[in-house]
Structures are given as structure tokens and as C-alpha cells.
Amino acid sequence: MFDSITLGQYYQTDSVLHRLDPRVKLVGTFVYLISLFVVDSYVGYIVAALFLAAMIFLSNVPFRYIVRGMKTIVFLLLITVCFNLFLTPGEVIWQAWIFKITKEGLTFAIKMAVRLSLLILGSSIMTLTTTPTQLTDALESLLRPLKKLHVPVHEISMMMSIALRFIPILMEETDKIMKAQIARGADFESKNLIKKIKSMVPLLVPLFISAFRRANDLAMAMEARCYRGGEGRTKMKPLVYKANDRIAYLVLLAFAVVCILTRIYF
């Protein structure tokens, strides 16, 4: 039932992007997302799209695999586009019953769709080429200055990494419990909202119980392996910048500059 969720799941292969320091990728994604809101012209979008295309090429992840992941969010995309399309006031170019499309709405919807697609693809390139562990490591390392402000940086990143590890397991479990209840005649497809909420009880109760049991077991297993927070911990894979990473930062800088230039000149 959840087989279709490939959006952003790590794709194991070897590529320049895979080998980059996760901090570069995290910063890069951040820069890219901001740039999408900086550019506001078709030329700018083309630059952003080309940059993304280059990244996809460098990532060695099959394009089909990336697109398949997009399927799950097409619905979300459509809703956003529709909202913009029908609800933006301005010069009417098409009208039927209560629906009307304006020129401004059309431009805005197209831009929004492009922007959202690039945004989602851009961030999924990061998660496709970076294991969640690397990602949390990067986050922990980048946020380290916050430790001085008593932000539990290590704990947060540990929590994230555990959550990520257990998501697939809990998904599978959801699927299994759902099937077991369907086998007992449960109906999860009811159109009636109240019925639908009620039908979730036989799914959610067992799921919560199982999640708690797992959390308990895991806490004990971690304790048994001498886990006692971030103090005095060493790293198996410490993050160290290499030549490639410095080049990548330069490329990012160049990209950001180009984006700003398109904003000024187009």
C-alpha cells in the first residue's frame, strides 16, 4: 500500500553528489530554495531548471525514479495551481459558471507550478543522494553554534535519525494492521467522515501500542550499548571538507549570483 512512496528516499549508487559532504548539500538545497523565490522571470526559471538538470545528471539517479516519486504529490500541486488559477483577481480571459480565469492568475499559476516542482525536485535530489544519517550529522554540525544557547542539538538529531529509521517499519506495520482489520470486516474506505474517523480507531490503537513498545525496546537496546547522550561521543564518520566540497561551494556561490543578476536584469 505504501510501495509508491519513493519521494526523497535515499537512492544507493555512486556519484559526485553522493560523495559530497552532506553539509554542502544541505546548504546547497537551502540556497536553491531561496533562489527559487529570488528569481521572478522565465529566464531565471530556466537558469534554475538547468541547474537542477545538471544536478540530476550528476546524481546518477535514474530520472524515471525521481519522477515516479513526484506522482505522490501531483495532487497537492494540482490543488495549489487551481487555487491560483481561479482565485487570482485581474483581467478575465475565460469564464464559465462561477469559474473564471484571469491573465494574472494564469501567469501566477504557471510560475507557482514551476516553482513548486523545482522546489520539490531540488530538495529530493538532496535526500536521494544523502542518507538520512548523513543529513542529521550535517544538521548537527551546522547547528552546533546553537549548543551555546542550550539547544539540545545532539538529541534533536538523534531523534530525527531514529524517526527516519522507524518510518518504513511503521509504514509496513500500518499496512499489516490495516489488512488484519480488513480481514475482520473493517471498512477503511467509507465516504462518511464520522464513520471514517471511527474506522481509524482499530488501526491507530494497535499502531500506537506498537510504537510505544518499539520505543521502549529501543531505549533499552541503546542503554545496553552504553548510549548516554552526546557527551564524550566520538564519530565513526566525522565530517571533513575535501577539495570537491570547496568547489561545490564556489559553484553554489556562482549560481546564487546568476540568480540575483536575472532578478535585476530580466
Binding site: K176, I177, A180, V205, P206
Partner: peptide, 20 residues
């Protein structure tokens, strides 16, 4: 299908995980 599911009962592995 509903009739089928009641006529062909399926007890999953670790069925106690479905109690609620």
C-alpha cells in the same frame, strides 16, 4: 468481497498486534 472475507478467515502473524 465482504462475504468472502467473512467466509475465508485470515489470522495474521502475531495477531495479538491487532487487538484494540
Amino acid at each position: 468481497k465482504k462475504k468472502l472475507r467473512s467466509d475465508v478467515g485470515l489470522v495474521f502473524q502475531y495477531p495479538e498486534h491487532q487487538l484494540f
